[in-house]
Each structure stands twice: as structure tokens, then as C-alpha cells.
């Protein structure tokens, strides 16, 4: 920032106000846990920021009988509290309550987690992928709804002229699980994440985070499972399929190489299926 220039900081109270600031070039500030580390990465903090925490609509979780709406400014801790005990959302709750560490979870938001472009290990991304969440954006042209998969793929371009406002979830899951693999018991970013869910049609959805730069559904494995009987939700059997259909290119990082991230996927899937089977929702199996 040039000397003498005062940083612009807008605490927007409406989405419109936030969008106006965004249009003038302000960067969106959520909890701050990612952006505040920019200087450490050698990136200057933005000259203008717009904070979303004062927009009431973005700071609440609405839990309805057939759907759930999560404001982008809801923290991980608040999301976990709101959905704890809701059948079908076990995985999302585990993601919200297992990410990073307790202090960060009280500050870091859902929107921030999805919009941190270089953050491959975001816990909520695979968890929301198996929820088949819809991302609501406010763009300069108006509101827009987008599937989470498409959002994650295109977010780099999308976010240049949009703000993530809400996440919409259908309540069509009967069970879900979220298996994260940090290198310690907890506290570091997971080197691999597997999220799983079973919907009302007894179809299994699986997503993988942190293994590749962006989280994605494990379509090959889902299809292989769909080809078998529903009763085939057997941990060992699914792990074998995972081994057979492992189409991930693991990313190399300081903490783990690509080989390792890829190698641990079948066992994580196995654990995930076991976790699914332990939920009430799949007692029918």
C-alpha cells in the first residue's frame, strides 16, 4: 500500500452494500483466518476490504424440515452447533468440528473456507460436495445459484465479480461421514479427506479433498458402487473398489507426497463406510 493511503474498511450491513464495495475493488473479509496470513505468504493485505459479519442474513443457519440454509459468514463452530444431531449431516458436522483447531473454528467461516482459492485442504469442500450443496452468489448482475462442484471448479473466475452469500442443502441424506487424515491426531491440515454420504435412494456419494488441488467427487468409485447391490456397503468391498478405481493424482507438498495422499484413500474410504454403517440412518443394512 502506498504511504499515506488509508486502508478502506467497510463493515457492510446489507448484501447490496457489500456488493457495491466489491464492485469498487474491495476484497471480501470473512473471519480473517486466511487473509490475515497473507503478509506471511509475501502478499500485501488488500487496500480495501469489505467485511460481511454485520449482515444478519449471512450469519445464520436456517434448519427447515426439507432444507438447510447456511449463511456464508457462519463460523465452523456455529455450523457444527446448528447441525449437531441432525440425521444425514454427520459428515458436515464432523468437518465443521474437526477443521483446524478450536480457536480457528470459532472465527473461520463457511464462505471463507470455500473461497480460499489456494487452500487444498479445506474440510468443508468435500463435506458439502457429498451434500450436493447449492452455492448462492450475489453477482454484479444479480443472484446466481450454482452446484458446489461447478462452483469449486470455476470459483477463481466467479469470485472476481461475486460474493458467496449462502449455501443451500437439501435434506435428502440419511447418513454421512467425514474422514480426515492429519499427520498428527489433529491440528494440522489433513493430507487427505474422504467425505461419504448415503441418500434416500440408498446411493452412495463420495468426495475427496486435499489429495488434488481442488476437492472433487469420486465419480468412478460411486459408479462402481452403484453397479453393485445396495447391500454392498461393506467396508472391505468398497475399499477394494477404491483401490481399483483410484483415479487421483496426488499433489506433492512439504507435509506429504502425492504417492502418500493417493495411497491412503482406500483405507480412508473403508473407515468412512464403517462410520456410515455406525449411524442410525443406515440401520437398515
Amino acid at each position: 500500500m502506498a504511504p499515506g493511503v488509508e486502508r478502506s474498511f467497510t463493515a457492510a450491513s446489507t448484501i447490496e452494500e457489500a456488493l457495491a464495495a466489491r464492485r469498487q475493488g474491495a476484497s471480501v473479509l470473512a473471519g480473517g483466518t486466511w487473509m490475515m496470513r497473507d503478509p506471511r505468504r509475501g502478499v500485501d493485505l488488500p487496500e480495501a476490504v469489505v467485511a460481511l459479519h454485520r449482515i444478519p442474513a449471512l450469519s445464520k443457519v436456517e434448519v427447515e424440515p426439507d432444507h438447510v440454509v447456511i449463511g456464508a459468514a457462519v463460523t465452523h463452530a456455529a455450523l457444527g452447533r446448528a447441525l449437531r444431531g441432525s440425521a444425514g449431516f454427520e459428515g458436515l458436522v464432523a468437518a465443521a468440528e474437526g477443521a483446524a483447531n478450536p480457536g480457528i473454528r470459532r472465527v473461520a467461516t463457511v464462505g471463507g473456507n470455500l473461497c480460499a482459492l489456494d487452500f487444498a485442504a479445506a474440510d468443508l469442500a468435500p463435506a458439502l460436495l457429498v451434500c450436493e450443496a447449492t452455492v448462492e452468489l450475489q453477482t454484479f448482475e444479480g443472484p446466481r445459484l450454482l452446484g458446489i462442484s461447478d462452483f469449486l471448479k470455476d470459483r477463481h473466475a466467479l469470485l472476481t465479480e461475486a460474493i458467496v452469500t449462502r449455501i443451500h442443502l437439501r435434506r435428502d441424506l440419511i447418513a454421512s461421514a467425514h474422514i480426515r487424515l492429519p499427520l498428527r491426531q489433529a491440528g494440522d491440515y489433513p493430507v487427505a479427506i474422504v467425505s461419504l454420504a448415503v441418500d434416500r435412494n440408498k446411493r452412495c456419494r463420495i468426495a475427496v479433498g486435499s489429495v488434488e488441488p481442488v476437492a472433487r467427487r469420486w465419480t468412478a468409485l460411486e459408479q462402481a458402487m452403484a453397479a453393485g447391490p445396495a447391500s454392498a456397503l461393506d467396508p472391505q468391498r468398497v475399499a477394494e473398489l477404491a483401490l481399483e478405481h483410484n483415479d487421483f493424482q496426488g499433489r506433492d507438498g512439504k507435509e506429504a507426497d502425492g504417492w502418500y495422499r493417493r495411497q491412503v484413500l482406500p483405507p480412508l474410504v473403508k473407515r468412512g463406510v464403517a462410520a456410515l454403517l455406525s449411524t442410525e440412518g443406515v440401520a437398515w443394512l
Partner: peptide
């Protein structure tokens, strides 16, 4: 030294 922060240099935590 590649590990020059607390993200990549993993100290034991209470659960470990």
C-alpha cells in the same frame, strides 16, 4: 529450511 512456520513444522500437541 522448508519448514519455517507452525503449519509445516509439526510440534506434538496435547492429543499426541
Amino acid at each position: 529450511i522448508a519448514q519455517d512456520d507452525f503449519e509445516t513444522y509439526r510440534l506434538p500437541l496435547a492429543q499426541d
